[in-house]
Amino acid sequence: MRDRIALVGTYMRLAVLNELQYRANFWGSLLEGFLGLAVALGSLAVIFGHTDNLAGWSAMELLALVGIYYIMSGYIQTFVQPSMERLLRDVHKGTLDFTLTKPEDAQLLVSVRAFAVWNLIYVLLGIAVVVFALARAGDAPSTGQIVAFVVTLLLGGVIVYSFWLMLATIAFWYIKIENILVIFQSMYEAGRWPVGIYPPVLRLMLTFLVPVAFAVTVPASALVGRVSGAALAGTLLAALGFFVAARLFWRRGVRAYAGASA
């Protein structure tokens, strides 16, 4: 286990060194972060110019949700997406062979190889937005709410990772998978708003097909103290389910890649 942590550390150190060469990316990420934030704040301002709540969410609660959306996006764009895109490239070019001949769990290796450090800016922006929203809302969340928030956020992270891994694993059978990632990205955009505002079919899709609900809405609900014990348990179960499913699917994928079934 300690060896594995050291291994992940080595990968991250190298990735940071690599990214440091591209300082311009920092400004790009910063600009895009602020532009996105401008859109989010602007649309909130326009909407709350006409109403005092949206499906039961106040303006500041929704702002906190926007912040959480940013934290999750930052996590995806820093850790998950770069690694998975690298995996797809490796499958195309056949360089995954190098990974599979390494004496280490291949899933671990493909999951930690790339790390787009500048995108951590989104996480920082998101945290700032959440803190600002909570401060403006007045009463601070209780310790229980904060704990529930952190736990659901971590579980959301696990779910999103597992989901991306499953998508990328499809590449073992169907090489042209990039388009499916595009679907995820456009559907993930819907997570800027609480899934409760969507029609039932879309809400179901955003919960189980593209787990935006677990990634953003549930942690936000937990933070504002609007999540039940049952929902918490459900999130835990979902995280476990997604993780195990992703692991099994990955192993099947690797077996298919090696032609074990043939």
Binding site: T10, L14, N18, G94, T95, D97, F98, K102, P103, L109
Partner: peptide, 27 residues
């Protein structure tokens, strides 16, 4: 396994850093 038509070294960093990575992977 060495494949002449494929490379495993990271493109943007010195080879020495990729060496260090293999040290960690192979323990």
């Amino acid at each position: 396994l060495v494949m002449g038509n494929r490379n495993q070294l990271a493109w943007d960093i010195p080879a020495l850093d990729s060496f260090d990575l293999n040290r960690a992977v192979y323990r």
